[in-house]
């Protein structure tokens, strides 16, 4: 079938995820006005931009919570434009959503189990829980505590751990630093690098552009539903426009 050919093509240049002129609407509101981007294997790619620029909508379009009206999204050569959320998880994309969205009345352990919901190899669960506990020792201490009772930073760790439980090949993180104390923010970005070094490709949405560009290989700057700039992270960090708009320099 043709998907084989596409898959081969996708791997040959290392592109894992590709968005091609994606338009997404909320009712009549045109939220994404033709987003095209790609994420290559092993990369950390960041989407930065102001509130309402379409960063989260881009992630929601990828993982199937929103369906693009036009355009095409492919993951490892497979068309996932119209795939429902549970299929996308199964294919290997998982997400730590904006605002964390843990299951507040489930324990930390149960939340992690939910992350592995779509996996059929349930026996390997223990191994992955241990891996998450290795990354976040704090979660191991709190495994029986209800997720809703933890601090914001701990909840964010749990949300990232939960997303890892799906054994994703592409991990999407939506504003992982939102509302956290500076010390937690640094810790979270260290973890992002660590996860990436362990071999997971990462698509990172952030308002904290400085930290995000430090952690990323490449970045896209979104403005009102369109890509305004795309470059290597180091280049974006030096870009005057970016410095003015997002890095707080005048």
């Amino acid at each position: 079938m043709s998907s084989h050919g596409q898959a081969a093509e996708g791997r040959s240049n290392g592109v894992v995820l590709r968005l091609d002129d994606v338009h997404t609407y909320y009712g009549a509101i045109h939220a994404l006005k033709g987003i095209s981007l790609e994420v290559r294997e092993g990369e950390v790619v960041t989407l930065i931009g102001a509130n309402g620029a379409g960063k989260s909508t881009t992630l929601r379009s990828i993982n199937g919570l929103n369906t693009p009206r036009r355009g095409r999204i492919t993951f490892e050569g497979r068309d996932i434009t119209n795939a429902p959320a549970h299929e996308v998880v199964k294919l290997g994309i998982s997400q730590a959503p904006e605002g964390r969205r843990l299951f507040p009345r489930m324990s930390v352990y149960e939340n992690l189990e939910m992350g592995a919901f779509q996996r059929s190899d349930r026996h390997a669960l223990k191994e992955d829980v241990d891996r998450v506990f290795g990354l976040f020792p704090r979660l191991a201490e709190r495994k029986d505590q209800k997720a809703g009772t933890m601090s914001g930073g701990e909840q964010q760790m749990c949300a990232i751990g939960r997303a890892l439980m799906a054994r994703p090949r592409l991990l999407m993180l939506d504003e992982p630093s939102m509302g956290l104390a500076p010390i937690f923010v640094e810790r979270i970005f260290e973890i992002v690098k660590e996860i990436n070094e362990q071999g997971t490709t990462i698509l990172l949405v952030e308002q904290n552009a400085l930290m995000a560009l430090d952690a990323a290989n490449r970045g896209y700057v979104l403005e009102t539903g369109q890509i305004a700039l795309a470059d290597e992270a180091s280049a974006l960090r030096e870009n005057e426009q970016v410095r003015k708009a997002y890095l707080g320099e005048t």
Binding site: N63, G64, L65, P84, A85, H86, V89, K90, S94, Q95, P97, R101, L102, F103, P104, R105, M106, E110, E113, M114, G115, F117, Q118, R162, A166
Partner: peptide
């Protein structure tokens, strides 16, 4: 059961449940 856990996940947060791969 696994199904029961999925129900409770939907009750707690439907969007998060979908994002975890629960077929709503």
């Amino acid at each position: 059961s696994r199904l029961g856990r999925a129900w409770i996940a939907i009750r707690e947060d439907e969007t998060a449940a979908a994002a975890m791969g629960v077929p709503l």
